[in-house]
Structures are given as C-alpha cells and as structure tokens.
Amino acid sequence: MSQSQVNQTVETIIETENLGKTVFSSDAELNILSAVDLRIKSAESLAIVGASGSGKSTLLSLLAGLDTPSTGSIHLKGHDITQMDEDGRAAIRNQFVGFVFQSFQLLSNLSALENVMLPLELANDNNAEYSATLLLERVGLGERLSHTPKQLSGGEQQRVALARAFVTRPAILFADEPTGNLDSKTGSHIIDLLFELNQEQQTTLVLVTHDKALANRCQRMITLEAGKVI
C-alpha cells in the first residue's frame, strides 16, 4: 500500500459511488435515491438537507449500514459495507459508529446511566459505569443518573442520547433530525453540546436536518431533491 493510498484511507472516512435505492410497490417502482457520489473526510461535519421525502433519512440509513442500497457501494473506514451481511455491518457499527435520533430511542426500562453504559457493555468494556458517569456529568446530567427516560424531559433525554452516542468515542456520528422533537431553545442547547463533543473527540459528524441554521453550523452541506444531490 503506497503512502498516498494510506493518506487517502485516513482522510476519507466514508465514500459512496453511484449509490441508489429503489423500492417496488405493487404497480410501480420508486427511486428514493439515485447516483449519489459522496466523500466525507475524517473529523468533517456534513449536513444533509432537503425537503420531506427527498431521501435524507434513506441516505443516512445507507451510510450508517442500517439499510442496503439497490445500486452502488459504500466504503466506511475502508470497509465496503455493501458487500457485508447484516452481522458484518453490525460489527462495523459497534466499532466505528454512533447515533443520535430525532425520537431519542432510549430504552424505557433502563436508567439514564444504564442507557449510556449499554454500548460499552456490548463492547465488553470493564469501565462502562465510570465512563458513562463521566459523560453524563459532561452533558449536565450528573444528578439524574438513576432516572428513567419517563422521568426526564425531552431535552434531557436527548442529552442522554448524546452521551450514549459519544461514550464509545465513535469515529463517525450520524444524527437524524436531533432537534426535531425539541423546542428551539432546548434544541439549540443540544446542538451546542453536540458540536462541543464533536470538537473534543474529533468525531466525523453526518447530520440530517431541514433546519438551515443548524446545517450552516456544519463545515459542509449537501442538498437532496427527489433523491439526487443538487
């Protein structure tokens, strides 16, 4: 492997080529996404914007290996995840990827601490409790460790979700409308926190939003329309 190839692998964390997704209904086929060529560099922050139904969330789910494309390829950290089976992609997610969702997706039966500990426990980390506590303190929930999601406000739940996403120090973080369920003030606090943690950990951030202001805080922005990058 030449030096330039190594540099390119280090530099580019995600690369897609001719990425497309088509779904078939009973009487027609629908191109949700077509011919997306994308290169995302390490530690870069990228916003994917577009109207509802433009294919933003589909692109995010493909990039994160949650779904499989109909055409094209995706390389994540040098691994062609389109050639992998579901378990292979799960291993990649476990190793490199963190998520923040619009609907928080916390486990309702677990406390804030336990929710944050979970990805570490899955990775057999013996210091799960310590690391999770530190990060929850970092997001300002040091006093709410034992509270369950039902006992937390929306903003607090999203902070737990942020802590869960960052606790494994992922190479890349995917955020799907992270402020979609929050009021603008709480939303802006969450975004501040997201970018602070992103800076601290030098994480690559891929963020789906239709909020132009939020998108502008990212280093780069791509816009989707009818499944195509414009």
Binding site: A90, R93, V97, F99, Q105, L107, L118, L122
Partner: peptide, 15 residues
C-alpha cells in the same frame, strides 16, 4: 422490538 433495533444499531449481531 425497539430494544432489539437499538441493540442492533449499537452493533449487536443477530445471534
């Protein structure tokens, strides 16, 4: 179902 989906998202394999 949701717990399983999140676990899958966090990198758990099917088995």
């Amino acid at each position: 179902f949701n717990t399983s989906a999140i676990l899958r998202c966090l990198g758990c394999k099917q088995n």
